[in-house]
């Protein structure tokens, strides 16, 4: 059978290890779509690769994910870009007939989401502002009480002076 000969030829192994030529890859994609046996054999080889990787897997050091999560999040949140809508008309029909198409004529600048995304480093700034706010509040209360106490003492001294004058 042609598909068994193809599987035995070693092209599948070359493909999963990245050593197949472009022509071989195209041929493999065709054979994979055409013959379920080839597709199954390829899946088994991919499982073999996963099996090796699972056995040799090591836990990433702490902090590795933080190094890449920002970029991944940005990619996922970024909307699919369709450059076609910004391409000018190749023909000049629209100019000749003084007509315009009904597509978008401006780029929407205002974001649709009500949420704002900021860098993680800002959490330390917010924490510092919060702590400084608490310190200033404590100072204000302390000096207010000190001031009130001093005024009371002044008042008492004044009263004593008046009594002495009498």
């Amino acid at each position: 059978m042609i598909q068994q000969q193809y599987i035995d030829s070693g092209i599948l192994e070359a493909y999963v290890t990245g050593t197949a030529t472009d022509a071989e890859v195209r041929e493999l994609m065709y054979m994979k779509a055409q013959y379920p046996e080839v597709n199954f054999a390829l899946q088994q080889l991919e499982l073999d690769m996963e099996h090796i990787a699972q056995h040799m897997a090591i836990a990433p050091p702490a902090g590795t994910w933080n190094k890449i999560s920002d970029t991944i999040d940005e990619l996922i949140l970024r909307p699919e870009f369709n450059p076609g809508q910004f391409q000018p008309n190749t023909g000049d029909k629209g100019f000749k007939d003084h007509q315009t198409d009904n597509g978008p004529h401006f780029i929407e600048v205002e974001a649709e989401s009500n949420h704002m995304k900021i860098h993680k480093n800002w959490k330390w700034v917010f924490a510092a502002v919060f702590i400084l706010g608490k310190i200033f509040l404590g100072c204000a209360i302390y000096f207010y009480l000190e001031n009130r106490q001093a005024q009371q003492q002044v008042q008492e001294l004044k009263t004593e002076l008046k009594q002495l004058k009498k």
Partner: peptide, 9 residues
């Protein structure tokens, strides 16, 4: 798993 492969290499 990918880190394991990269470490092997």
């Amino acid at each position: 798993m990918l880190l394991g492969y990269l470490f092997e290499a």
